[in-house]
């Protein structure tokens, strides 16, 4: 492969990987605390895109205002899902919670189809991100530079919340032992709600950047990125936020580079993530950075 092509693919891979990582953060935080795979997480990301879309198209807000409102609404949606669907099954067998999560995922997708319609919608990409740069024969969109930067900022904020604030300490406690944490006088449900909010906001940020990158959205857009982000979370070691980001980057790079090296395999792109997942679970079930064993 020529160096310019390689550099080009590297940029693509890093930006795609950052998006996987951002979505994976939500999975890994919820799993770390509740041991629940939030199947609906990819669909929460989709909802974030639609909030932003309608903010711009229906209410003619400036793009930045619309994006901020979308982040807030998606965070609230995450809290609502936790309150309405997950909290009632918190003490039920784990399988019930998992089935509920699948139900929520389908509800969001199908309600999306009913309310937004199934057609692809063109997503608005602000001019400042639309410029195309050429450096040494490598052409790329301005957005692709911003994606990793914004991602790192969000990651830093989330790591700050988890390791430097009181709520974050409560989150870490709950992931070790929910009952004892409750006995210590921590409002467990509130902390879990905050976890859902933070994870959903990260997903919405990832989703909006995803929508700007491939400027089309539809109600089923969250399924595949959601699944791959989960693989990224497992790859990085589930429950580990920094690991999720690294897992996302590795997955994004693996996908893009493999297709760049073997274009004839491009049809199998969506299968790569699962092949990786099966390999990790066989050879290193704790992921790259994880300490916890899967059950």
């Amino acid at each position: 492969m020529e160096p310019t092509v390689f550099a080009q693919q590297l940029i693509n891979g890093i930006s795609l990987g950052s998006l996987y990582g951002l979505i994976a953060i939500g999975y890994t935080m919820v799993y770390g605390i509740l041991r629940l795979i939030n199947f609906a997480h990819g669909d929460v990301m989709m909802m974030g895109c639609f909030f932003a879309f309608y903010g711009i198209m229906m209410f003619s807000l400036p793009w930045w205002a619309s994006f901020i409102i979308a982040l807030v609404l998606t965070g609230l949606l995450g809290v609502l899902i936790d309150r309405g669907a997950y909290r009632p099954v918190r003490n039920a067998p784990r399988i019930s919670a998992l089935i509920t999560a699948i139900g929520v995922s389908f509800l969001l997708e199908n309600a999306g189809l009913v309310v937004f319609g199934g057609r692809q919608k063109a997503f608005y990409r602000p001019e400042i991100f639309s410029e195309v740069h050429t450096i040494g024969g490598v052409r790329f969109l301005e957005l692709l530079i911003w994606v990793p930067i914004i991602t790192l900022l969000i990651l830093a904020v989330i790591l700050f919340i988890i390791y430097k604030t009181k709520v974050g300490r409560a989150m870490r406690c709950i992931s070790h032992d929910m009952e004892t944490t409750r006995l210590m006088g921590v409002d467990v449900n509130r902390v879990i709600a905050i976890t859902f909010a933070v994870g959903s906001v990260a997903a919405a940020a990832g989703g909006i950047m995803w929508a700007m990158r491939y400027p089309q959205i539809n109600p089923l857009m969250g399924i595949i990125p959601g699944l791959k982000a989960f693989v990224a979370a497992v790859l990085g070691g589930i429950g580990n936020v920094a690991g999720a980001m690294i897992g996302g980057l590795l997955l994004g790079l693996a996908e893009i580079l493999l297709v760049a090296i073997r274009p004839d395999l491009s049809g199998y792109r969506d299968a790569i993530a699962f092949a990786i997942l099966i390999l990790i679970l066989i050879f290193r079930p704790t992921g790259l950075m994880g300490e916890k064993l899967p059950e």
Binding site: I37, R94, L227, L281, P285
Partner: peptide, 18 residues
């Protein structure tokens, strides 16, 4: 069947996609 619980769900879901 090297994994259980939620992981089994995701791996088999992935298999369906593959």
């Amino acid at each position: 069947f090297r994994v259980r619980g939620d992981y089994l769900a995701i791996v088999t879901l992935g298999f369906g996609e593959v």
